[in-house]
Amino acid sequence: MRRIFVIAVPYLWLLALFLVPFLIVLKIALSDMALAIPPYAPTLDFQAGWAGIKAFVSELDFENFTFLASDDLYWKAYLSSLRIALVSTFLTLLIGYPMAYAMARSPEAWRPTLLMLVILPFWTSFLIRVYSWMGILSSEGYLNQFLLWIGLIDTPLAIINTNLAVYIGVVYTYLPFMILPVYATLEKLDGQLLEAAEDLGCSRLSAFWLVTFPLSRSGIIAGCFLVFIPTIGEFVIPSLLGGSDTLMIGKVLWEEFFSNRDWPVASAVAVILLLILIIPIVLFQRNEQKQRESEG
């Protein structure tokens, strides 16, 4: 009895919070747009009994998905999201790894404080932080004012409303997600391994590449997925910091849903996005599992 309960809880959780909403979204994706409330047809009418359900199912089709395939806006948006996510993940790694490394190498007494500083931004609202970046990056923003003041530039740089601003926003927002897992693996690293590597003829640098880096691999992989997965569907950062030419699937989805009120197409976009994300999510889980086993 208890065992059934223990197993049932996570499955019920999954069912209620993932599977049911997903099926609802999938159902909408298979429907047609309608000028009604809710703005799609058909709707399921349980009062009509079995015949009602049959009539409902017969009206569902894959029209919206064929539409997505025929309009190149969508697959361009998917590709562009993938590219932006990949590039930002790489940049986050490039910036986050040295930070995590420095933290792990700092005196033990400082580490809790440094860790605190990494987590500190989460204490303010994400939206407010993105808005502040608008204040920093806009043409009259602090950055441009500062650069003009020190005389480095004559005319303000156009950063806001470009992909560059999106990259800055994404890297800034997701940096802690990279630093934390990488730091966790680096902090566990036995310093004697590096001494052993040097003893066997490595320079400091080659000891890093041959020992430290491979041993922090699982942290790097975890960090990359934690940045990559949410960035693909990111909507707030591209709409606030990006320009009209910043194409991201999250933004497209939002516009289909709220501007066009085309719930079925928006749902179809969401279903495809989910299918794309399943691959990295599964890979991420496998990495975590392997990590646990090797420590096990």
Binding site: D190, Q192, L193, E195, A196, A197, E198, D199, L200, G201, C202, S203, V211, P214, L215, R217, S294
Partner: peptide, 20 residues
């Protein structure tokens, strides 16, 4: 002389084998 430039090798107390 740094450790990597000495004709000396060490067997560490905790072995320090490379786990990967």
């Amino acid at each position: 002389t740094p450790p990597n430039k000495r004709p000396v090798n060490m067997m560490f107390q905790s072995y320090a084998l490379f786990p990967h």
